[in-house]
Computed example of a mutant assay.
Amino acid sequence: MYRLLFAQVLRRFDAETVHHVTIRALRVLSVAPVAKRRLYQWLAPRDEALRVKAFGVHFPSPFGLAAGFDKDAGCVEALAAFGFGHVEVGTITAHAQPGNPRPRLFRLVTDHAIVNRMGFNNQGADQAARRLRRPRSVPAVVGVNIGKTKVIPEELAVRDYVAGARKLAPLADYLVVNVSSPNTPGLRDLQAVELLRPLLKEVLQAAGRTPLLVKIAPDLADEDVDAVADLAVELGLAGIIATNTTIGRQGLSKAEAAGAAQTGGLSGRPLKARSLEVLRRLRARVGDRVALVSVGGVEDVDDVWERLLAGATLVQGYTGLIYEGPLWAWRINRGLSRRLRRHGYKSVQDLVGRVAD
């Protein structure tokens, strides 16, 4: 039903407009306790075999929603009610900012992909903190993804990240330093270890007991992936999220030439192979010393299963939600439960790294 709605109606409208309408609807649902709890009863993961523990946090399912969808932490409960095992909000900057000019979000329907150059548009850390402080009537595991405010010069980036971390870390189940978006000038330069080390050290201190992860780009050279992996172990980070969107355009069909020509980060199906490649490299480098979260090109239960076997403790998706609809997470959780029983596994945790190791 959703695919027909998308093909006949939604794809005819501007992608960002549809996104804003969706967010508004989810915010309404988030403050409607009866409807929200009923959805949670129907769709949230309840199979004990799906439960997984990562960096001291208990997740009802390994499959969660990546950052980028709920930028301002406005609909966490609604998204949890639809079946996501965790919701990563953001990217949130210390100061509110409008992001890049519109249009800045483009569907590549044939390739089940998206190009975005949003530019960390969000209402800032103070507004997000107010929302995250609200009592919840349904359980939700919440990660907070923080980034650099665009107008802050690179030499003050550490201070900017720390300001966001101090406000948001106490309200998060885990905190993510995003240094890998291609849509903030100079941001990806911070992935260089000589710049990343002092940044992560300061944010670690600001985060206190909240687990800290770093999110990296798929466009890093293999030796740079290794360097970040070694740094994560050295500093005692909780995890690495791999990967963000790519500035590459490999794997796109000719039918999407117009969308591919847009500047910005590419997400979705074309990112699948590289994201999996980076995950396998990270697992070979760090083993189980650092939790790995795999994101990029995840579309169905087969993708989630493959990432778990390759060493991911958690798996995230985003673009698939646009193409598969609101029951996407529920279908993946149901598929995981069935496959676990079919293969005789007692827990999804038993899968993690079985192929890699």
Rank of each mutant, 00 (worst) to 15 (best):
S253V: 04
S275W: 06
A232C: 10
D173T: 03
L351G: 08
T319N: 07
L65I: 06
S267A: 06
A312H: 08
F82S: 00
V177E: 03
I241D: 09
T110N: 14
R38N: 14
V18G: 01
G208V: 03
D350C: 15
R12I: 12
A169T: 04
P185L: 04
T91C: 04
A35W: 11
E256H: 06
G85H: 09
T110Y: 14
V89W: 08
D222H: 07
G335R: 12
A257M: 11
V52F: 14
D350F: 14
L308Y: 11
V225F: 03
G56Y: 12
S181I: 02
L190W: 02
V87Q: 13
F69I: 02
G186D: 01
G239T: 13
E324A: 05
G317I: 03
I240V: 11
P60S: 14
N122Y: 03
K36W: 10
V115N: 00
G74V: 08
V352S: 04
N122F: 05
N178D: 07
R188K: 11
V141C: 10
V28A: 10
I322V: 09
L65C: 07
R339C: 10
R159P: 09
V21Y: 09
P103Y: 01
E256C: 08
H20R: 08
L196G: 01
D219N: 03
Y323L: 07
R281L: 05
D303R: 15
I23M: 04
V57S: 12
T243P: 00
R285K: 13
F84D: 09
R249W: 04
A54P: 03
E154H: 05
L108V: 08
R342D: 11
V304K: 11
R117W: 00
V151A: 06
K150A: 00
L105I: 01
G119R: 04
R11L: 08
R209A: 05
G317C: 07
Q8Y: 13
A44F: 10
E77D: 13
A113Y: 05
D300M: 12
L336E: 12
V278H: 02
I332W: 08
R249K: 07
R159T: 12
